[in-house]
Design a protein around this nucleic acid. Structure first.
Lengths: 192, 192
DNA sequence: AGTATGAACAGACCGACAGTCGGTTTGTCA
DNA sequence: TGACAAACCGACTGTCGGTCTGTTCATACT
């Protein structure tokens, strides 16, 4: 039971990879299962053997995107000891991540609508927000009641800033301004 | 040419009203044109006479939602002379508006995915963000480069806070905390 | 070796849905 | 009153997501 399982894994991953590209380029609604099938050269039966439906395929794609973003974040803060410094580094990394078209379309635009807000928020809480809340608690002298709210505000704010960079005519200079703005935001949120 | 035009207007508005309810309850994807037709007791031809497609119907719904939100905001600040005070009042009103299921589902969850981020942002810029930027410029002593970024951050942050209230078990007490958090956020963003 | 098992895959098929199209009705105005 | 056009009607179409009945084949068992 190894060659078979490996083969299954391979098609699964292949499907996720192909779907990631199509979802990013055309959005969830703009991507038909047919299109995925054609691009991946996989049969209908194979796809529905691995995924119960289109939204499950999307969820799998979203999962790999989360993985990548988390890995980038972890790499950015490794070795850091000062919580505030690590938080700042993680925030800047997140802004850069969110400039990636894949992250933008899949994580920020489609995910809430496809999964529904509730499921989306639960996933985000588990994979992103939770850590951010811990980091905020460690880094600042925020009142405990504020931590949750400000974690959401910070994350949403960073997303917005990242979107602004992505849309800017001159992305290079926008990125510089944006990172300054993000740093400034962080300062203000953490101030006593 | 009056009875006819009036009748057209009436069906149009009726469709928008019915669609608003269905979009709010089941989301954009969960609402079929068929369902709208049945609920509104209007024929297919009539609907497609007034709207080129499902997304156009959604756009019309979104428009009326914007209208209501704007009207609420305008009422909240009327008579105020201090820009900072008006800004604060508008923000709190916006939080309360965003707690409305219609606003939440239509404006915050579906709109970006249905219209596409670009079109959505352009609309939002014209109807909400633009005013907010002006208000921020008047109310604070923010560096001009910061105004744009912080306007986005503030709006997104307020949305998040509103969502937290909407999802809370005890909405009443959550609302109190949330408005305090929003006020705190505003203070921090406007501080020199 | 022979056979049973079940994962992986194949592709015809189905129902639902968004959108189209050739009509019909009905105010309006010259 | 007759031409005109807006409003409306509903059968029809193409596409799409999802189902269902197989078939293949690597492994486990005897």
């Amino acid at each position: 039971m190894n060659k078979k399982i490996d083969r299954g894994q391979a098609t699964r991953e292949h499907l996720v990879a192909v779907a990631t590209g199509l979802f990013t380029e055309h959005g969830y609604d703009g991507t038909s299962i047919e299109a995925v099938l054609r691009a991946a050269e996989v049969s209908r039966g194979a796809l529905y053997h691995h995924f119960p439906g289109k939204d499950a395929l999307f969820a799998a794609v979203l999962d790999t995107v989360y993985d990548r973003v988390e890995a980038d974040g972890a790499k950015a803060v490794e070795g850091m000891t000062d919580p505030a410094e690590a938080l700042r580094a993680a925030c800047l990394t997140w802004i850069r991540s969110a400039a990636d078209p894949v992250v933008r379309q899949v994580m920020l635009i489609d995910a809430p609508a496809v999964l529904g807000w509730q499921r989306w928020r639960e996933g985000d809480e588990a994979r992103t927000l939770g850590k951010l809340k811990v980091a905020l608690r460690l880094a600042g002298r925020l009142a405990p009641v504020r931590v949750d709210y400000f974690a959401h505000v910070l994350l949403a704010g960073l997303n917005e800033i990242a979107m602004l960079v992505a849309r800017a005519d001159d992305r290079a200079s926008a990125a510089v301004e944006a990172e300054a703005a993000a740093g400034d935001l962080l300062d203000r949120l953490l101030r006593a």
